[in-house]
Amino acid sequence: MSFTHKHILGIEQLAKEDIQLILDTADSFKEINSRDIKKVPTLRGKTIINAFFEASTRTRLSFEIAGKRLSADTVNISGSTSSVVKGETLEDTAKNIEAMAPDIIVIRHAHSGAPHYLAERVGCSVVNAGDGAHEHPSQALLDLLTMREHKGDIEGLEVAIVGDITHSRVARSDIYALTRMGARVRVCGPGTMLPIGIERLGNVEVFTDMREAIKDADVVMMLRIQMERQSNVMIPSLREYARFYGLNPTNLQLAKPDAIVMHPGPMNRGVEISSVVADGPQNVILDQVENGVAVRMALLYLVSGVESMQTR
C-alpha cells in the first residue's frame, strides 16, 4: 500500500496499514544506525525545521539525528509559549518559517492542537512531536516497534499504562496505536489522573489499583510523573504515589514472567519506577530510545514522499 499522509498530526488519523508500513520502514532504516557511516542520501536537499516551543531534549535530539542520518538539513528553533500573549503569534511564526521554504516542520508545542493549526496554515509537511496533552505519535510508534521486536506480534498483547493519564499525550497516542493493532490497553492511575471518557478512545479498561492493572500484563509502561504539576493537588505526595503507583520488583512479579518494562523518559527513579526495575532485565527503555531514531527516520521519509508527489 502507499502512504498518503502529508502530515503526521496524530495516531488517530492513521490506519492499521499505515502503522504497519511505518514500523516496517523503521525496521529497514534501523540497520543504518549500526553502520560506521550512519548516513544515507535519501533526503538530500530537504530542509527540516525542528520547531520546539516546549522544552525537550530527547525528542528533539532524536528527530535531529533522524533527519541528519537521511542527509536532510535539519535546523532547530526553540521558543517558549509562556510569553505567547506578548510575543509573535504562532501564525506569524509559521509564515516566517514557511518563507524559508522548509520541506517538513517538526513541531513540539505546549498547546494541544498547535500542529493542526500549523498544518492548516503552511504548505509543507507537519510532524507532531508532542502537543499539550493531546498526542505524541512518534513516541507511540517507537513504543510499538519496541513491543514488536520483543513480543513478535502486537495483536493480543495486554499493555498496562500507569501514571498521570490525564496529562499524558503518550497515553493517548499509545491507546490509539495499540487499539488499531489489536492489543488491549489497561490504564491505571490515582482517581485525579484518570480523565473522563478515556475508555472511549479505544480498547481500554480503566484501573485505580495498580496490582490489578499489571496482573498478567505483557507490557508495563510507566509514565513520568510531572513534578512541576504537583502544586495542582493531583496527589498528596510523591512518597505516597510511589507506594501505590510505583513499579517495583514486588509488584512487577504480578505481570507475566516475560513482561517488558517501558518508560517514555525521562524517568523519576524512586517515584514511578524503582531503580532496580529501571535497570533490571525486563527493562527495554534504551531500546525505545534507539527505535525512536528509526521510527522518526521512517516518518520523515514517508511524509517527504507524499509532499514531493503533491508538489509535482
Binding site: S2, D27, V40, T42, Y301, S304, G305, S308, M309, R312
Partner: peptide, 22 residues
Amino acid sequence: VDITMYRDDLAARGNLPIGKTD
C-alpha cells in the same frame, strides 16, 4: 542491498517501500 534510500529519482517516485540491507 536495498538501493531505495540511494535512488536519484525519489522525489519523482514518492515514498517507495524501503527494503532491508543486510
